[in-house]
Design a protein around this nucleic acid. Structure first.
Lengths: 170, 170
DNA sequence: CTTGATAATCTCAACGTTGAGATAAAACAG
DNA sequence: CTGTTTTATCTCAACGTTGAGATTATCAAG
């Protein structure tokens, strides 16, 4: 049993034997980096087959799971998506053109700097269909792990995320 | 102990209780997706502090660990980096301008379609310094896991990578 | 009030990647 | 040989993100 990371580590040991003792973090971080690329590609293709961009999925699901009234300020989406303000503006522009979300400015009383992004009925429907298909796809992708190993893996990953400060979606 | 993914799953259960049984893959894949983003940002910053792009690191380390003569055809770099041909051409252009690599076309006998990318002395030096700092940084990032948990985590990640077909760097 | 600082969003040029197509060389078939 | 297919690399326009700056609104202090 060996994967691409084993091959990479083997090359390093052959070329730089002096580094052998220091390569152990690559077993974890090299694989995480590589899995990040693989999953990104997989999810991007999955979304594209449904006419959606990965960043758009991000916005749709964030709004959906935020619950009624399915509307959040642009700034909240920005933090949840871990991207810059320019990226969110572009996403909302595109998604508004597709009829998935709409910009709502509060007329009376509220903070007139904020723009709330609200799921349209169409956006709701697209998101519901997408989530069902996406979760089925994710279950398929994890067939190789039994439930116990999956749980233990999730626990270790949680420790890492916490230690990196990724503890909140607000 | 809870991280951003716990928060996301909690929101989903509140908004869509009917999905609760289907959310378990998110404990693993949601975290992998999120760790991918976090690590990408971390490594990108780390490289930028040394005047390098993440894609450039990719090329430098691939050439270094390939061993003497520290030269590979553009196509090999393309597969190793998991990017398209246009991306590799651009990277080589930039890195050649920085004096990190050089294009070598075989004059006599060889296949004149292929272009071999070779590490320059400067590229060698930059790569050696970078690897030492990078491995120290990676060890620091994994402080939160003891060696046993780290090994077990690496093992589960290897299973996933293999099941996704990521078994070779050639 | 008025001034200054902070906050939320948008604008825009620069950047790296993608993906289709072009170019050129090599391999193969007749 | 000659013509076709395949392989390796480069070209280029389109795309999404970044990051700095502009715009507009709110808040705090005097």
């Amino acid at each position: 049993m060996s994967d691409a990371v084993d091959a990479i580590i083997g090359q390093w040991i052959a070329e730089r034997p002096d580094l052998e003792e220091d390569l152990w973090p690559v077993h974890v971080l090299g694989r995480l980096q590589r899995l990040g690329r693989v999953l990104d590609k997989e999810f991007r293709t999955f979304a594209a087959q449904r006419g959606l961009e990965l960043g758009e999925i991000d916005v749709l699901t964030t709004l959906q799971r935020s619950g009624p009234p399915y509307a959040l300020p642009a700034g909240a989406l920005l933090k949840a998506a871990m991207v810059t303000s320019g990226a969110i503006t572009n996403r909302i522009d595109r998604m508004e053109a597709k009829g998935l979300v709409e910009r709502v400015r509060e007329e009376s009383g509220g903070d007139r700097r904020t723009v709330r992004i609200r799921l349209t009925d169409h956006g709701h429907e697209v998101t519901r269909e997408y989530m069902a298909a996406h979760l089925a796809n994710e279950a398929r992708m994890l067939r190789v792990l039994d439930r116990e190993e999956s749980d233990r893996l999730g626990g270790s990953l949680r420790k890492l995320l916490e230690s990196f400060g990724d503890t909140s979606i607000g």
